[in-house]
Amino acid sequence: MSTITAHEAIGQALAEEMRRDSTVIAFGEGVATKRHELVEEFGRARVRNTPLAEGIIAGTAAGAAATGLRPVIDLLFAPFICFAMDEIVNSAGKLRYMSGGQFSFPMVTLAMTGAGWGVGAQHNHNNEAWFVHSPGLKVVMPSNPADFKGLLKASIRDDNPVVFFLDIGLLYVPGEVPEGEHVVPLGKAAIPREGSDVTLISYGKTVHACLAAAKTLEGEGISAEVVDLRTLKPLDEEAFLASVRKTGRAVVVHEASRTCGVGAEVAATIAEKSFASLAGPVVRIAGPDVPAPSSYPLEQAFVPSAAQIVTSVRGLVGK
């Protein structure tokens, strides 16, 4: 184990995968500038800066992926993906199906989002649900440095287009990461804390709010299990359904806005597939349906807090 940040973990994953497979290339806005160690090791043909033009960055990745390369692209902030929607959604996500399976699109799109830097709604927009709703894509959003590394390695090896969200609030927080080969399979949730009274289901930054809430609740005699989804598509239904069948209560927590968010899908799945095990309604705690504000207190108020989760769970268990 070594203690590194998520940013460093991403660098390790990229370097290891580029070493392992000569078809892996990385390009995007400032990639060669920010990841100069990759340029030194792999050269400017494989690690490239690009114009600030998200459409052509993503389109180039899709075209390259269909013809033998494995591009990892960095679009910087998640709202900028709006300029690359056609290339990611219409091309990478659909052209395999539309061609009757003739092509595959092994590419990873990196994009930062989330509260923490006060950058405002055109740099901070947790839009991961858009991609969960789009066919042919996979969507990943890790919560800790080890998962950033392991999930990115798995994403690069995957033969499908993966949209990989980086919560900026987590990028420079250190954590333990296994040395060497550490691959976390896509589509597998983690249970960072076991419990028996309520299941807290989350991903990204709010996993930590759930863990903090679970600790508080423990002091009140309430045992909370935390499920970290890690991959939002494909969703590890079995993991959270098994947990809810055990605890009988579910609270879904995410920073993204509530309406049609991933939490809605999780809640509906629980209602459909384990209604009988529920002792109460499935509760969603999510960001409001407003653009993310810049001002620090407002930005913090946007994000679900441990206190909100604790209050909600108390209501649910009747304490």
């Binding site: 075209g63 013809t67 033998g68 390369l69 219409n90 091309s91």
Partner: peptide, 24 residues
């Protein structure tokens, strides 16, 4: 390869195919 009916879609993909050809 890669027929896109999104007007301009083919233009966005062509550079990637060109990059593959070039790097190979």
């Amino acid at each position: 390869i890669l027929t896109s009916t999104i007007v301009g879609g083919e233009l966005s993909l062509a550079t990637g195919v060109g990059l593959s050809v070039s790097m190979q």
